[in-house]
Design a protein around this nucleic acid. Structure first.
Length: 426
RNA sequence: GAGGUUGUAGCUCAGUCGGUUAGAGCGUCGGCUUGUGGCGCCGAAGGUCGCGGGUUCGAGACCCGUCAUCCUCCCCA
C-alpha cells in the first residue's frame, strides 16, 4: 500500500458490515456526540471551538514544564513566520485561553463551556492510545464551590450512563492547594529518600522529576516500600478538606458512587483540590476513560483574573472501545424516506425530476443510478434502510402514479405523483 | 523512548517438511426467463502473500532489514 494514514491515526468511515475496527464507524461517533451535546444542553453548558494549534508557550505554561506531555509528547513546529506552534495536546488550556482573550466572564459570571476536539500526542501507540485522538470535555469557570465540582463529575457519569457503559469506577481525590501540595511533596521526598536505593529505576527517576507519581508505581516492591509513606490527605489545608467533604456529600446525595483514592495523581501540574478519574476495565491497559479536576490558579497563570475552574476531558476512542467490549447496542440510524426505483429509460428521466421535487418538499430521498433490475434495486433500498421503495415503470408513468412499497410491512400502494411528497412525509 | 507479537482477497482466517497455477467462509457483482428485497441454489470478479534484500534448483513459508499492528512498560483520554 502506497499511502497509509500516519502512525497512530485512523479514518472514520460510513458504517459497514465488515469494518475492521468497530469504533471507526461514523454512525457511532454521531450517536456519541449527539448524546453528549444533548446532555450538555440539559446541564447548561455551551459549546466552544478553538484552533487546532496554539502557541507552544501556552501548553508549557498550563500543563507544566515537568510533565511528560510537555517534555516528550507535543507536536511542535516553527512556522515560516518563526512562530513556535503546537497541536493541542489537551483541551483545557485552549479553552481557558479563549475565555481570557474574549473576556467571557463579563457576560457569564459562571461560564459553563464544552468542546469536542482532536488531541495530539506523540506517543508509542497501542489500543486505546493514539497520536491523534478525540476528546469531549467541559470546563466550568468562575465558581469555586464543591457544588459545581459535583455537577461536572455527575455530568461525566451521566454521559456514560446514557451510553450504557457498565463496570465504571469513579476515583476521587483532593490534591489540596498548591501550598499544601508543596508541603506534602517535601514530606514525601524526605520519607522516600533513604529508601531510594531499593526502589525501581522508574521510581528513582520519578523521585527527581515528579515525586507524587512514585505513589502509583506498578512495581510491587515500590508499593511495599511506600506503604507507610505520608498521605496527601493528612497535609490538606482546612478549606480543601471542607471542600472535599462537601463534594462527597453532594455525590452521595446524587447517588453517584465513587472510591476515594489518596494516591490518585494526574498528569497535569495545574490541578488543585478536586482530582478525579473514571476508569473502565474494558480498554486493555488503558483504563482511564475520563479525567479531570479543579484548577484554581490556572486562569490567573494564563493572564486572566483570579478565577476558579474545574473540568474534565473524556476520550472518545476509549469510550467506543468500552462500548464495543461491553457489546452495547448502538441505535441504528434510519435511511431515507424513499428510494426511487425506475424501470426503463423514460421512467429514469421522470425519476430524476421527481427526486429533485421530493427533496425540495423536504423528503429525504435517493434513487438508483445504475439501471439494474428491480430485485437488485429493492435490495439496495433495503441495504440503505430506506423506509419506502418508490417503483416507477411505464404503466405507472402512463397513469401518473407510483407504487409506494413500505419496506417494513411490504405493503404496496399506488399513489398519484402529485401526492407523493405528502404521502412520504407521513 | 524500552521489550515483545502478528502481517495471505474488502472482512475473518486456512495454507503440512521449502515444491506445479495460493484456498475457504462472509461481503461484492452476475444468473436461477417479463417488474418485487431479507432465505436458498449456481457462477464470477477480486491477491505485487505488508515492503526491500538475502539463502536456495525452488520462498507465502527460512534469514536480515524496514513499515504497519497489537501487547507489556513509560505516560495518559
Amino acid at each position: 500500500m502506497r499511502y497509509v494514514a500516519p502512525k497512530g491515526t485512523h479514518d472514520i468511515l460510513p458504517a459497514g458490515n465488515d469494518r475492521k475496527d468497530w469504533a471507526d464507524d461514523i454512525e457511532k461517533w454521531h450517536w456519541l456526540e449527539s448524546v453528549f451535546q444533548d446532555l450538555c444542553a440539559r446541564y447548561g453548558y455551551e459549546e466552544v471551538r478553538t484552533p487546532t494549534f496554539e502557541a507552544t508557550e501556552l501548553f508549557k505554561r498550563a500543563v507544566g514544564e515537568g510533565t511528560d506531555i510537555v517534555n516528550k509528547e507535543m507536536y511542535s513546529f516553527v512556522t515560516k513566520g518563526g512562530d513556535d506552534i503546537t497541536l493541542r495536546p489537551e483541551g483545557t488550556a485552549p479553552t481557558l485561553r479563549a475565555y481570557v482573550q474574549n473576556r467571557v466572564w463579563i457576560e457569564r459570571p459562571v461560564a459553563k463551556l464544552y468542546y469536542v476536539a482532536s488531541i495530539f500526542r506523540y506517543e508509542r501507540q497501542q489500543k486505546g492510545r493514539y497520536r491523534q485522538h478525540h476528546q469531549v470535555g467541559v470546563e466550568a469557570l468562575g465558581a469555586q464551590g464543591p457544588d459545581i465540582d459535583a455537577e461536572v463529575i455527575s455530568l461525566a457519569m451521566a454521559f456514560f450512563r446514557a451510553l450504557g457503559i457498565p463496570r465504571l469506577t469513579l476515583k476521587l481525590n483532593s490534591v489540596g492547594t498548591v501550598e499544601s501540595r508543596v508541603r506534602y511533596v517535601a514530606a514525601l521526598r524526605e520519607f522516600a529518600e533513604p529508601l531510594l536505593p531499593k526502589m525501581s529505576a522508574d521510581n528513582q527517576r520519578r523521585f527527581a522529576e515528579n515525586a507524587l507519581r512514585m505513589l502509583d508505581s506498578k512495581e510491587e516492591r515500590d508499593q511495599e516500600l511506600l506503604v507507610d509513606a505520608p498521605l496527601l490527605t493528612d497535609y490538606l489545608d482546612d478549606d480543601s478538606r471542607t471542600h472535599f467533604d462537601k463534594l462527597r456529600g453532594y455525590l452521595d446525595a446524587f447517588g453517584v458512587s465513587y472510591e476515594i483514592d489518596p494516591r490518585l495523581v494526574r498528569g497535569f501540574d495545574y490541578y488543585t483540590r478536586t482530582a478525579f478519574e473514571i476508569q473502565s476495565p474494558d480498554v486493555g491497559s488503558q483504563s482511564a476513560l475520563a479525567g479531570g479536576g479543579r484548577y484554581d490558579r490556572l486562569i490567573e497563570d494564563l493572564g486572566g483574573p483570579a478565577t476558579p475552574g474545574i473540568g474534565f476531558g473524556l476520550g472518545i476512542e476509549r469510550t467506543l472501545i468500552a462500548l464495543q467490549t461491553a457489546q452495547v447496542d448502538v441505535p441504528s440510524v434510519s435511511g431515507p424516506a424513499a428510494f426511487l426505483c425506475p424501470l426503463g429509460a423514460s421512467a429514469r428521466d421522470a425519476c430524476v425530476t421527481l427526486l429533485a421535487q421530493l427533496r425540495d418538499s423536504g423528503v429525504s430521498a435517493d434513487m438508483d443510478y445504475t439501471g439494474r433490475k428491480l430485485k437488485v434495486m429493492l435490495e439496495q433500498a433495503d441495504r440503505i434502510r430506506a423506509r419506502n421503495a418508490v417503483i416507477l415503470g411505464d404503466s405507472e408513468l402512463a397513469e401518473g402514479i407510483a407504487q409506494v412499497r413500505n419496506m417494513t410491512t411490504k405493503e404496496q400502494t399506488p399513489v398519484p405523483l402529485k401526492e407523493l411528497a405528502q404521502a412520504l412525509l407521513m
